[in-house]
Design a protein around this nucleic acid. Structure first.
Lengths: 211, 211
DNA sequence: TCAATAATAGACCGATCAGTCTATTTTTAT
DNA sequence: ATAAAAATAGACTGATCGGTCTATTATTGA
C-alpha cells in the first residue's frame, strides 16, 4: 500500500497549523480544523504541544528559521556585493509571496489579532523581529552605509510594507516594488550624508553620485 | 447634574468597537466586552447594527473617513508644494500613531485575522484601499513625477510598512522613518532619467533556492 | 400630558471553542 | 515474537461565543 507519508506527526501538525493560522487567522482556526488538515488525532496534538498557544509558538519558530536561513545561509552564498545581497533579500521575499500558501507573516498577523497589551505575543514576536533586524543591520553596516541605523529601519519598514501589501493584494509584485524602493533608499544613502532632518528635499544639490 | 454624555448610542458603540477591534483583535473581542466599554445595552447594539459583522463594517467606514479627511480636507489646505503635501501625509500618520488608542489599521488587522479566501473582508477592505491609493496617486501625478504608478505603489507600500511597524513596535517614530524613506523615493524619482544611465546596482537574477 | 420611541438589564439559546480522557489499534525496538 | 510506545477515534466538559427575547425604565415630541 501507499505509505509515502514520511512526515512525523509533529511536522504534520506544524505545517497544517502554520498554513491555517496564516490563511484563516489564529483565533478563527479551531483545533479540530488543524487536526483534519494535518490528518492527526486530537490527543497527538496535546501530547506534542500541550496547547494551542504552544503550537503557535512552534509556528513562530519555523517562520523565524525561514528568515535565519535566508540571512545565514542563502544570502552569504551569493557571489555579489553586499549591496546586491541586501537587494537579493527582496528576491527571496518574492519567491515567498509566490508560494500558493503565502498568507502573510505569522508574526505580524499574530500581533494584529492579539491583545496589544498582552505580554507574550509581542515579546516572542518582538524578540524574533529584533534578531531579524540585527541580521539586516549587519548587512547594512557591512555595506559601509552611513547612518546604518536609519538605513536599517528604512529597509525593515519597506520589508514589512511588502509583506502586508502582498498579503492584502495577494500579489507578489509587492516584492518588486519594495526592491525598487529599497534601491532608492540605498542610492540616496551613499550619495547624501546629510539627509537626516532636512525639511528641504527639493534642493537641487542632489548630485546623485552613483557608485 | 452631570449629563455630559452627548454621544449617541451608535457613536458610543462605534468608538468602543473600533478601539477594541484594533486593541484586542476582532475575533478576540466579544460583544459583551464592547457593550461594557461602550456602556450600552445588548439590545441596542443589535437594534442599530444588527450583527457584529455590520458593526465591523461601520468601523471600516469610520477609519476610511479618517483617510478621506486627510486627503480631501487636511492636505489640500496646506500652503506648500505638492511634494511637501505628499510628505505631510507622514506627519499625519505620526499624529495618528501617537494617539494612545492607536493599535494598528483596522483594515490590515481585519484582513490578517480573517479567512484569506473569504469574499467580504477583502472586498470591503480592498475597495477602501483602492480609494485611498487613488487619492495618493492623484497627488503623485500632480507632483509631475514620472512613472507615477510605480511611485504611488512605492509610497503606498511605505505607508503600510509604517502602520505595521508602528503597531508592532508601539513606536510612532516609524512615521518619521517612513517619511525619510519617502523622501528618498521622491528624490530618486525626480532625477530618474539620470539614474538609468548610471551603473546601477541592480542585481541580476540570482540562482537561489527558495526556502 | 401622554403616547411613542429608545434604551435598559439580563435570562436564555444553540453552536463552538480548547482541552481531557478512555479504549483501541498501529508502529517501533529489541 | 512481544512488550512498550505512539497514534488513533471520538465522547465528553465547562466556558464562551453571537444573537434573541422579554419585561422594565427613560426619553422624547406634539
Amino acid at each position: 500500500m501507499a505509505k509515502e507519508n514520511r512526515k512525523s506527526t509533529q511536522e504534520k501538525l506544524l505545517l497544517a497549523a502554520r498554513r491555517l493560522f496564516c490563511r484563516a487567522g489564529i483565533h478563527a482556526t479551531g483545533i479540530t480544523r488543524i487536526l483534519e488538515e494535518a490528518g492527526v488525532a486530537r490527543g497527538s496534538l496535546y501530547k506534542h504541544y500541550g496547547s494551542k498557544e504552544n503550537l503557535l509558538k512552534a509556528v513562530f519558530d519555523t517562520e523565524a528559521n525561514m528568515w535565519f536561513h535566508w540571512f545565514d545561509l542563502d544570502l552569504p552564498n551569493l557571489e555579489c556585493s553586499v549591496r546586491e545581497r541586501i537587494l537579493a533579500l527582496f528576491d527571496l521575499l518574492e519567491k515567498w509571496f509566490e508560494k500558493e500558501d503565502f498568507f502573510g507573516c505569522v508574526f505580524i498577523n499574530a500581533v494584529a489579532e492579539h491583545e496589544k497589551d498582552s505580554r507574550w505575543v509581542k515579546d516572542v514576536a518582538g524578540a524574533y523581529r529584533d534578531q531579524i533586524i540585527d541580521r539586516l543591520k549587519a548587512l547594512v553596516v557591512e555595506s559601509g552605509a552611513r547612518d546604518s541605523e536609519v538605513v536599517t529601519q528604512k529597509l525593515g519598514l519597506i520589508i514589512e510594507g511588502a509583506i502586508v501589501t502582498a498579503m492584502v493584494t495577494q500579489n507578489s509584485k509587492a516584492a518588486h516594488i519594495a526592491r525598487l524602493a529599497a534601491e532608492d533608499v540605498l542610492r540616496c544613502t551613499e550619495c547624501s550624508p546629510s539627509l537626516s532632518e532636512s525639511p528641504a528635499p527639493f534642493a537641487t544639490d542632489s548630485a546623485m553620485e552613483p557608485v
